[in-house]
């Protein structure tokens, strides 16, 4: 399954092992993101991640195909969790395989930088009884924009 959007727990180690076995290409890069236990205001106890599932599935599929074409990937996979999570729970897993490490790393990074701002998920962090929606960070916008600029000479 290339894209999987789920409210069930994901296991990045198992996903990576399966990907390596299914795609024994020369270079394979994987990324896993986890719920952090802090933000700019202090401690975070848990995270609720809202999702527009139908659109997220479509956006992530389009994103994977774009990465495949742009970086010449041989294979890719994107798995994204939503719903109620605790700190250190895995949120996202991305894998990309290619003939050389540069393309595999770039494919993985492009997918992560783009899905942060383009895939319909919304984080709500909880600390004690307080909960607040996370706003888009400038660094995430910058990283997303970087691929648009660099895309001109790809």
């Amino acid at each position: 399954m290339l894209v999987h959007v789920t409210d069930e727990a994901i296991d990045p180690g198992e996903l990576a092992t399966r990907f390596y076995r299914s795609h024994p290409d020369a270079a394979v890069a994987t990324f896993a993101g986890f719920v952090r236990d802090f933000n700019d205001d202090g401690q975070v106890d848990s995270l609720y991640l809202e999702c527009y599932v139908e659109m997220a599935t479509r956006v992530l599929n389009d994103l994977g195909k774009t990465a495949q074409e742009r970086f010449g990937l041989r294979a890719w996979q994107i798995v994204h969790r939503f719903g109620q999570m605790e700190t250190e729970d895995p949120i996202v897993f991305v894998a990309a395989s290619a003939d050389h490490r540069g393309e595999a790393f770039a494919g993985c990074e492009f997918v992560m930088d783009t899905l942060k701002t383009d895939a319909p998920f919304w984080k709500r962090e909880h600390s004690g009884d307080e909960g607040q929606w996370v706003t888009v960070k400038a660094v995430d916008k910058d990283r997303r924009e970087r691929w648009s600029t660099e895309g001109l000479d790809q």
Binding site: M55, A56, V92, L115, K116, A119, W122, V136
Partner: peptide
Amino acid sequence: DEVAFFPPMTGG
């Protein structure tokens, strides 16, 4: 059609 309204996205 299906129309949706939402704030900026914060995935990953």
